[in-house]
Amino acid sequence: MKGNYKGLQESFGTHLKKIRESKGLSLRALASKCDLDDSQISKIENAKWDVQLSTIFELAKGLEVNPKELLDFEL
């Protein structure tokens, strides 16, 4: 798993973006719904930010989904 960490980040970011767009939210709109900056969300979606568990919960709150939905993606 350690060698594929970048792939994990990319898959998570792609999944996050897909959910965000399916909800019709811009980066700025999602950021305003949770305790994050739109640039942080952009970096997560582009696999340039190491997402923490607390961030996943903030994103889930802003997207109005269960946190496990954010972790339900293919590698």
Rank of each mutant, 00 (worst) to 15 (best):
E21D: 05
T55D: 03
L59C: 11
T14M: 06
Q9A: 15
K68T: 10
C34D: 13
K23I: 00
S42M: 04
L70V: 09
F73Q: 01
N46G: 02
D72E: 13
L53A: 13
K6T: 07
L27K: 08
L30W: 05
W49A: 10
D72K: 06
A29S: 13
G13V: 04
I56F: 11
E69I: 13
S32Q: 07
S11V: 02
W49Q: 15
R20P: 12
R20F: 08
L53P: 09
S54Y: 14
L27M: 15
D72W: 01
S42P: 05
K2Y: 09
L59R: 06
F73K: 02
I41M: 04
S39P: 10
V51W: 05
L27N: 10
S26P: 11
K68D: 13
G13A: 06
F73Y: 11
L27S: 06
D37M: 12
L30G: 09
S39Y: 14
D37H: 15
L71G: 04
C34M: 08
K48G: 10
R20Y: 09
Q9W: 09
K23P: 12
V65T: 05
S32N: 03
K17M: 01
K17P: 00
D35H: 14
V51E: 03
K33D: 03
E21H: 04
Q52S: 15
Y5R: 13
C34Q: 11
Y5E: 12
N46D: 04
E74M: 05
D37I: 10
T55I: 08
K48W: 03
W49Y: 15
N46V: 00
E64A: 14
P67Q: 05
I19F: 11
V51G: 01
K17Y: 04
G62D: 02
A47M: 00
Y5T: 11
E10L: 03
E58F: 05
K17W: 00
D38H: 14
K68P: 03
N46W: 04
A60P: 14
E64S: 14
S32M: 04
V51I: 08
K2E: 07
G62V: 02
L30M: 08
S32L: 02
Y5D: 11
D37C: 11
D37Q: 15
E74D: 14
F73R: 00
G62A: 00
D35A: 13
L75A: 12
L8D: 01
D35K: 12
D72F: 10
G3M: 09
S22V: 08
K68Y: 09
L25T: 02
Q40G: 04
L30Q: 05
I19G: 12
K17S: 03
S42E: 05
F73E: 02
A47I: 01
E74K: 08
D72M: 01
S22L: 11
D35S: 14
K23W: 00
